[in-house]
């Protein structure tokens, strides 16, 4: 019936509006819910979300070894050519020639932090770091070489 529908509409509207007001009222009275951070003041105690993506890094262990095999999966996965893999040939223990990375060049200025390279990597050699203060005075400083000098591939990573 028309009148019944009319009253139902009003009741539904009032109910949903009060629901919204209850939520904002809760936030108004509970200041611990505030999520903004006073960034330059709290550099020491910065609380970044788990999935925050700042830049691509390659973790090295204490023997200066990384897990990158040079398979180029990250280079292929990257949508805008941020990663370049440069190879060198090195001799392994049996004296055979083996392909290994010379430099893994990472252009931070091109990177969109899309996380596709990390997902493509079969050996978990690269990951996203949470650093985000990337401003520099010279643009060349943004082109980074991810593997440390004289680093080697970890044993057992193929």
């Amino acid at each position: 019936m028309f009148i019944k529908k009319y009253i139902q509409e009003i009741w539904g509207a009032v109910k949903s509006l009060l629901k919204g007001m209850r939520r904002t009222g809760y936030y108004f009275t509970h200041h611990k819910e505030i999520i903004t951070q006073q960034y330059p003041d709290n550099r020491e105690t910065l609380n970044l979300p788990e999935r925050f993506k700042g830049e691509v890094v390659m973790p090295h262990d204490e023997n200066n070894e990384h897990r990158c095999t040079g398979c180029q999966a990250c280079e292929l996965a990257c949508p805008n050519g941020t990663i370049k893999v440069i190879f060198k040939n090195e001799l392994n223990a049996e004296g055979k020639k083996k392909k290994a990375i010379d430099k893994l060049v990472y252009h931070l200025e091109l990177c969109t932090m899309c996380n596709l390279c990390i997902e493509a990597c079969p050996s978990d050699a690269i990951k996203m770091a949470q650093t985000f203060e990337h401003s520099v005075f010279d643009r060349n400083e943004l082109t980074k070489i991810l593997n440390k000098p004289d680093s080697k591939i970890m044993d057992g990573v193929e």
Binding site: T24, G25, Y27, F28, H31, E33, I34, T36
Partner: peptide
């Protein structure tokens, strides 16, 4: 201030 607190912000401080 009211708007900030309702939007889980700090507002002018």
């Amino acid at each position: 201030k009211v708007s900030a607190w309702m939007q889980i912000r700090l507002g002018p401080n």
